[in-house]
Amino acid sequence: MKSVFLPKTPETPSVRMDVAQAYIELEGNSYPENAFEFYQQIFDWIDEYFAHGADRLRAIFRLNYLNTSSAKCMLNFMALLQQYHAQDKIISVEWHYEEDDDDMLEIGKAFSVDFTMPFQLVPFSE
């Protein structure tokens, strides 16, 4: 099981999937041509990561902009993490948002209500 890094592009976030440090981090914009295809590779990595016996994952989201297809993928992302949380894996989610960005805050708030895994809303200033 290898760590993976996907570099940032104008329309996709950087994605760091780190096995040794047990975290996954996304940062940047997300409006890819095919959001489901882009996020599926990340979901596959998470499934494989836990299949290899990992017991924890810290998920860090620092997203600037999500189009609606990506927002749906984020919902699927949270559902996947919640699934592992329900299997007694130690999951924590950090949803970072620019402090004046009410759209990203509200998306994060909705996720924090929809799912029972530990979920932290973290404001930041540019």
Binding site: T68, K72, L75, D114
Partner: peptide
């Protein structure tokens, strides 16, 4: 949020949610 939950199928490109957005 409700529409986002109901439109999770892969084939949808999200125009309904898009108008709401």
């Amino acid at each position: 949020n409700a529409l986002l939950h109901s439109e999770q199928e892969r084939t949808s490109k999200g125009a309904g949610v898009g108008f709401l957005d």
